[in-house]
Write a protein that binds this DNA or RNA. Structure first.
Lengths: 163, 163
DNA sequence: ACCTGAACACCGTTCAAGT
DNA sequence: ACCTGAACACCGTTCAAGT
């Protein structure tokens, strides 16, 4: 069989959903595709690059069109969207958290941008974005009420600084 | 050579500090001690148990005597203590975060207790403790000003609910 | 109580060579 | 462009047997 990069990502997401992140090894995925493990290195420079591509695809699928709204409502919606996207897949939060360690920038950018539009300075925008993102990643297993409570705590803190 | 459990933990912390969490394998640690890898399973049921013992020891070393103070000052101090303890070791935050995944309870308890003493109900105490802990783990690499800012955000949110 | 020796069932990664 | 075959240098874990 011959595959393109996107085929490999799609199959990797299937393995993830069916067997979890711990089972998603290069060898296992290759075996699933019916190719040798080394063949995957034609598509990705290493495993982290594959995981990043999976995270990209998961987040792309969960992306919704931007709307014009108040900054706190926007942050709320961004966090909910992120939470929904990652909860659609087994070990989604663990995967996103792993990728976030290597590239914090990409995930935090939309949150930071919303904070800056609300008048936050660079420091507050950066820290606020990071803290919100960590909150989302930390509460994957929490129910919606717990998540809303944690998010409310943080948004209150931000409101106290941004009016 | 013959070792006791505590010797192994102490040496593991040395390996951690010198070479990082990724290099801290059972085989490597055993080699460093001059024993076979299998010998470690006399002291720990598995690698996670070893990592938990390391985390315990790191946090034990960082523990300070309890003082009587306002709940928000106490939370502030607990978070600072946790941050200091884990920053004393290479990959300290990653190690604590890993152990926290398996046993969230132990690390969150003191934070939750402080929140309950402040009048928080069970939900707010649980979510507040978890969010604070995640904040500490998330900002290992941040400078003190960024950390203080993130912590301030959250404490403001808590103050708004607890008076 | 603590360790050896040896095995089992895995990993990620590289690379010359093939089509 | 994509894959094979085979190797390299590792993992965590188990367990009978030794002292």
């Amino acid at each position: 069989m011959r595959y393109r990069r996107d085929d490999v990502v799609a199959r990797a997401i299937e393995v993830l959903d069916a067997h979890g992140l711990a089972a998603l090894s290069m060898r296992r995925l290759a075996g699933d595709l019916g190719v040798q493990a080394g063949a995957l290195y034609h598509h990705f420079t290493n495993k982290d690059a594959l995981l990043a591509a999976i995270a990209d695809e998961i987040l792309r699928r969960g992306r919704r069109p931007a709307e014009i709204m108040a900054w706190d409502a926007e942050l709320h919606l961004l966090c909910l969207g992120l939470r929904d996207a990652m909860r659609r897949h087994r070990d989604g939060a663990a995967l996103i958290a792993h990728v976030h360690r290597a590239d914090a920038e990409a995930l935090e950018r939309p949150l930071r941008a919303a904070l800056e539009r609300a008048g936050a300075d660079a420091d507050l925008a950066r820290v606020g974005a990071r803290t919100l993102l960590r909150l989302v990643l930390a509460h994957e297993d929490a129910d919606d009420a717990d998540f809303a409570l944690g998010l409310g705590l943080l948004l209150d803190g931000l409101r106290a600084r941004l009016g």
